[in-house]
Amino acid sequence: MTTNDVAVRVRDLQKTYGRKAAVDGVSFDIHHGETFALLGPNGAGKSTTIEILEGYRIRTGGDAHVLGVDPAKGGLDWKARLGIVLQSTGETGLLTVAEQLRHFASLYPNPRDVDEVIAAVGLEAQAKTRIGKLSGGQQRRVDVALGIIGRPELLFLDEPTTGFDPEARQQFWGLIRRLKAEGVTILLTTHYIEEAAQLADRAGVIAGGGLVALGGVDEIGGADARVPLVRWTDGTGSHEQRTEEPGLLVASLVGSLGREPDGLEVIRPSLEDVYLQLVRAAEPVPAREEVAA
């Protein structure tokens, strides 16, 4: 497979700051039209990885191709094919929503229609309002609008729904599904694992600068991690047991105890549970918090 078959190819990516490794040997592919979620705790190397792929930072080692181009050497033509929604910024916001979008549209060779984009992010009523006067969630929608105004082939979404209320998040998910349907490739990072489960086809979990899991959102962490878990307490302490047949286990517990077990829980691990297991297993994370910024 050549680098042109995939939208993003990362091989053994390395980034060190002084003697600290922020990213240490990360490899993954993102196929055209795929939505890929990169998950991980703060300071795990997520942002550094993404900023290398966006062309902001220069890698120390390894290989990266983004839309067939080395991001360290990407020119303006390459940038015109990307859409980047950065983590929230503190811009002064002196322009109105429509002014800002019209201006950014003018920077791209084949932009989307400004009014359509404003409608897509649900800001029709705020089009003539200065961005600085919008609420945090509304400003975040402007960020998303600016990310898609250039009709990108590849969209980077770095924690896009921070500050959204649940309804706004649902609307945002709808927008991302429409972009997916148009064939846009998406690289998403989020702290809302539910969001990754909803939107992503595949996910990678990054912890301590390395990739600890990679796969479909339904498979990641392996089959064992998704086996239902039964927890209960008895005279000897608390117990937990994984089983494909939790009902039978509970029935046998009741049978042997002759009564309702204390603290009984039956858990079907969600992506979030799997994620938390993976991240905890990767601890102790060396002091990488300082390099997160």
Partner: peptide, 18 residues
Amino acid sequence: ALEKGNGTLKRLGSTPLS
């Protein structure tokens, strides 16, 4: 300096603006 500090420049740097 303000634009560099508040992310305005970073955003412009993501566009095909020379």
